[in-house]
């Protein structure tokens, strides 16, 4: 059995080298006839599962649009924050459109496509009764958060809350409503869309000033960034901004209008 593992590991390496030596990715995708896109399935309304088991949301619309522009089928692979970059490096997926924030550390690992297609910042959702006024009010308090979120460390260092980190949004929001923490630290875009659409948040608010704006990027494998494939993606995102496609899909998916999208649209049109 150990031998088998060794053989498999050896095969893994050869497969890896073979993958790196391949020619143009764009041609590969067209030859395969399908584009494999990593998307989120637990981030409503950007990417979520409908009752029929279909994937839907803003980012799914984007993935489908990329595929149709390339003239290929789309295959959607659900990813989470902890595996999306690995999947892209391994070649399991061709493209990541999964609420991924663009930052220098990640740029060393994957090819972040410019321009950015979306932007969000950090904020909290809290019961109105708590009456938070400023970020400083969080000091020493229990704050729910998600494991692996990039802003956890920054907020802890600056404002010193005790973070209670959960694996998923349902668990974290459940803890928030049960009173296990005074606020839930998350993306302002998600909080805004929840407050606007869900009646269960009637007694909650987003009391703080959104901080640390993060642009989201779609990503390709690092070596493809300057290749025709990466350039093509860059053109597509530019076109999305230029034609107002993103603004239209944003509204269609019931997300509050994004100042970032408007700004980019005005800039590029």
């Amino acid at each position: 059995m150990k031998k088998t593992v060794k053989i498999l590991a050896a095969l893994a390496m050869t497969a890896g080298f073979a993958g790196a030596a391949q020619a143009d990715k764009l041609d590969d995708i067209k030859a395969a006839g399908k584009l494999v896109v990593g998307i989120k399935q637990d981030y409503k309304p950007w990417g979520y599962l409908t009752v029929d088991g279909e994937l839907a949301g803003l980012e799914i619309d984007l993935a489908k649009d990329v595929a149709s522009r390339l003239g290929v089928e789309v295959e959607l692979v659900p990813v989470v924050a902890s595996n999306r970059m690995e999947f892209l490096q391994q070649g399991r997926i061709d493209l990541v459109i999964a609420t991924m924030g663009d930052n220098p550390d990640r740029r060393k690992v994957v090819g972040m496509i410019e321009p950015n297609y979306y932007a969000g910042g950090t904020n909290v959702i809290a019961p109105k009764a708590v009456g938070l006024k400023s970020w400083e009010d969080l000091r020493g308090k229990d704050v729910c958060a998600l494991q692996g979120s990039y802003y956890n460390r920054r907020v802890t260092q600056l404002y010193g809350p005790t973070l209670v980190a959960f694996a998923g949004i349902p668990e974290a929001t459940s803890a928030l409503t049960n009173g296990n923490c005074v606020a839930f630290l998350y993306d302002n875009t998600w909080i805004e869309s929840q407050l606007a659409t869900e009646a269960q948040w009637a007694d909650f608010e987003m009391p703080l000033v959104t901080e640390d704006p993060q642009a989201w990027s779609i990503a390709v494998p690092l070596e493809e960034l300057d290749a025709p494939y990466g350039k093509m993606m860059s053109e597509i995102v530019t076109d999305w901004h230029k034609t107002g496609f993103l603004i239209e899909r944003n509204a269609e998916n019931g997300i509050a209008a994004s100042p970032f999208l408007q700004e980019q649209h005005d800039l590029l049109k």
Partner: peptide
């Protein structure tokens, strides 16, 4: 480890419904 089985589906369903009282 990222396989889409019943637990992942449950999580996805929970976030699609975004109902706090649905978790338990």
């Amino acid at each position: 480890v990222g396989v889409n089985e019943v637990m992942s589906l449950t999580r996805a369903a929970l976030s699609a419904e975004s109902r706090v009282d649905l978790l338990i």
